[in-house]
């Protein structure tokens, strides 16, 4: 029920984002979605890819430090209040969201959001208990282009 996310440390200066992206592109790996968190000094690039093991190996061989984190993909109704309702559930269960970002892919009337929780397993349980749809990695991959 969880996705593997790759994170990379980047210095916050021109040209730093291109190098790791080129490295995984050369390995034939398509990025399903990404998010970039930054401070004045440095940033963290977070990636979701189909073959994360290969991507991790390519990046590490090229000298990057890669962090592997489990994140949760949640299907939300793509209409006003869709996200707010989900957040209310998480808040009610006292689940702390470290960060979140939207998946680039949308299906039907749904939008997919990626959540990073302190406790992903409990988060998945809470979401399911409240009738929300947690997207399985295999299922997600079926919907994205090769």
């Amino acid at each position: 029920m969880k996705l593997q996310q790759l994170s990379l440390f980047l210095e916050n200066r021109p040209g730093r984002l291109g190098a790791p992206l080129e490295a995984i592109a050369a390995g034939g790996i398509n990025i399903l979605t990404l998010s970039l968190a930054d401070t004045a000094q440095f940033g963290i690039l977070r990636l979701i890819v189909r073959d994360w093991e290969k991507a991790k190996r390519i990046l590490e061989e090229a000298g990057w430090i890669v962090n592997l984190t489990e994140v949760v993909a949640v299907d939300l109704l793509d209409r006003p209040g869709g996200l707010a309702a989900a957040l209310k559930i998480l808040e009610g269960a006292n689940l702390n969201i470290e960060y979140m970002y939207a998946f680039s892919l949308r299906r039907d009337d749904k939008a997919i959001l990626i959540f990073r929780f302190e406790d992903p397993d409990r988060a998945v349980q809470v979401l399911l208990d409240h009738g929300l749809e947690v997207v399985d990695a295999d299922e997600l991959m079926r919907h994205v282009p090769e």
Partner: peptide
């Protein structure tokens, strides 16, 4: 230089180590 031991996907953790 950032090492695997201190690197995290969370900005807060990196700010903290800094």
């Amino acid at each position: 230089e950032v090492t695997p031991e201190v690197f995290s996907d969370r900005i807060g953790a990196l700010e903290d180590i800094r």
